[in-house]
Amino acid sequence: MVALLPSTGAKAQVSPQKRSRTGYFLLLPGMTWLAIFFAIPFVTLFLTSLQAPVAGESGQYVPAFQVSNYPDALMEYWPQFLKSFIYAGIATALALLIAYPLAYFIAFKAGRWRALMLVLVIAPSFASFLLRTYAWKTILADEGFITSFFNALHLLPDDRILNTSIAVIAGLTYNFLPFMILPLYAALEKVDPRLIEASNDLYASAFTTFRKVTWPLSLPGVVAGTLLTFIPATGDYINAELLGSTQDRMIGNIIQTNFIEFRDYPTASALSFVLMAVILVLVFTYIRRAGTEDLV
């Protein structure tokens, strides 16, 4: 209890928090916006997912309680669901592998280049997402250097990368990499380098130090980065659309085409809802570990 008293210098650092009406006033407009345009749409999404079609008129639906929309949608589209999780899972694992050395380098070795390197991690987001993805068409083209290289090693089952699942996963890995690097960096930056020195001093090899000290201390960043990469990758459909073939379509493509092209609102809503439910399970598992205060 004594440790919580603001009577000692260092602990007085805790921001003085006031309880007053001003707090609610500051929250009200923004939170109302989020409530109306983020939270409530999930209610309408749920209601839409239960609607029944009007016989004879395509694109017209009436409010109903057609729970069967869910099993119907899942029966039809479970392969795309599965594919989404597999692609996103592989992409997340690859991103972790690629991001970790960079994040580690920025946190511990970059010195005065640290700020610049962080800027360079964020900078790609300033170029159009669509165009960057489209650029992979050029990079992975059939007659391109990369495809030729792998073909020479006979590593490609279809003799090409573009329009295969490999291209889709490569695109996903690339696009969401900064979301992996930044949380990893944030976690590693908090690790006192003296802990690593201490571990080396206590006869731990570099590998043991990493396994027993660095890695466990960076776990919050690993978990956050994994979530922030996996979730948008699962829902993405741009990579699948631009880099994959029709066999590589992910759940995002299905939702998009059902919603906008086929106007099959109930099916698209049901699929969105199931996707969101899976993601909420992930998020709440994370919150149980970390609490809500660290989220924002």
């Binding site: 839409t48 829902g235 939702i255 919603f259």
Partner: peptide, 13 residues
């Protein structure tokens, strides 16, 4: 953390 496709779809709904 919500996939954009879900946000887009629900808002459209």
């Amino acid at each position: 953390t919500t996939p954009e496709v879900v946000m887009g779809a629900s808002l459209l709904a």
